[in-house]
């Protein structure tokens, strides 16, 4: 399918949304194009699901405008072109996997055959089982199959691989990639940097309801690739601060905690000055810590 003439799959301009006193999204400008996978990445509470809800028309922005496939979010035109997988969704427990797929495929004019869908999500063996008897991961895969069933030009997937084992995750990734290669726009949310890295063409980093980075995954990774060195050393703060690649250093109870962008370089220089360095530990900063770091940089 060629989507070259489409307006932007999703276009958000100056979108803000509050839940009570909490500003869930603040002044978001975002254009999602076809033929690419865009990952909304961020810690819990960053505003990812809020944005998805606005894109789907489940909530309306307090200010700003948003269009989905050139139409109002949640309108019949937008729904006809969207395949959706929500974080907190369920299907009727009493119907079988096949019955669910057949029912949903019937909603779309150009739906995939049920057998093909079953294969794409690896549920051929479970086709006759009732939804209620499936494991959590299998249920998620049925929901994913429903999102794919109409070959929609827009896929909106809220944390699609939560509760999936490694094999199902690979299958899911492959199916998402195939949709994007076929020209669909894919918007997915994830709190896993690895998932964004493995899958996305573009990563939009959200924190505190704001976009703090919008770039290709490798560029994002470089920005958040911070490591922590923890050890005991006889060097003083001034000397440690001058080591290469060091961002910050602090000491508690005789133990140094040093943040660095390149642990090898920092350590090589450190060991040259203090060969008696002890109790060494190196850890990669968590996404949350890295985001905090990015946010502080933004604020500065």
């Amino acid at each position: 399918m060629n989507h070259a003439n489409f307006p932007a799959a999703i276009e958000a301009r100056g979108v803000s949304h509050r839940y009570g006193k909490v500003a869930a999204l603040q002044d978001i400008d975002l254009r999602i194009e076809r033929g690419a996978i865009t990952a909304l990445l961020g810690p819990n509470g960053a505003g990812k699901t809020t944005f998805v809800n606005l894109v789907l028309g489940r909530d309306r922005p307090d200010s700003g405008t948003i269009t989905t496939l050139g139409a109002a979010p949640g309108s019949a035109a937008a729904r006809a072109g969207s395949g959706v997988m929500l974080q907190s969704a369920a299907l009727a427990a009493q119907l079988t996997v096949r019955e669910h797929l057949r029912l949903f495929a019937g909603y779309y004019p150009a739906s995939l055959p049920v057998a093909e869908l079953l294969e794409m999500v690896g549920l051929e063996q479970q086709a006759q089982r009732r939804y209620g008897s499936l494991s959590g991961g299998q249920q998620r895969r049925v929901q994913f199959a429903l999102a794919l069933s109409g070959q929609p030009p827009l896929l909106v997937l809220d944390e699609p691989t939560v509760a999936l084992d490694a094999e199902s995750r690979r299958l899911t990734w492959a199916a998402i990639r195939a949709r994007a290669d076929a020209g669909a726009a894919v918007l997915l949310t994830t709190h896993l940097l690895e998932e964004a890295e493995a899958l996305a063409d573009r990563v939009v980093l959200l924190a505190g309801g704001r976009i703090i980075a919008d770039a290709a995954p490798h560029a994002i990774k470089a920005r958040v690739a911070e490591q922590r060195i923890s050890c005991r050393s006889s060097l003083g703060l001034a000397e440690i601060g001058r080591l290469p690649a060091v961002i910050a250093a602090s000491e508690t109870e005789g133990r140094w905690l040093v943040r660095t962008t390149r642990a090898q370089r920092t350590l090589a220089a450190w060991l040259a000055k203090d060969p008696d360095l002890k109790d060494l530990e190196i850890a990669r900063a968590s996404l949350e810590e890295a985001l905090e770091q990015l946010l502080q940089r933004e604020a500065a």
């Binding site: 949640g74 019949a76 969704a89 369920a90 429903l146």
Partner: peptide
């Protein structure tokens, strides 16, 4: 029950009239 479980929510996002 359908609403609580999110069944209705998903239906309303689909192209189902």
């Amino acid at each position: 029950a359908d609403r609580d479980a999110g069944i209705l929510g998903l239906k309303r996002l689909s192209p189902l009239p």
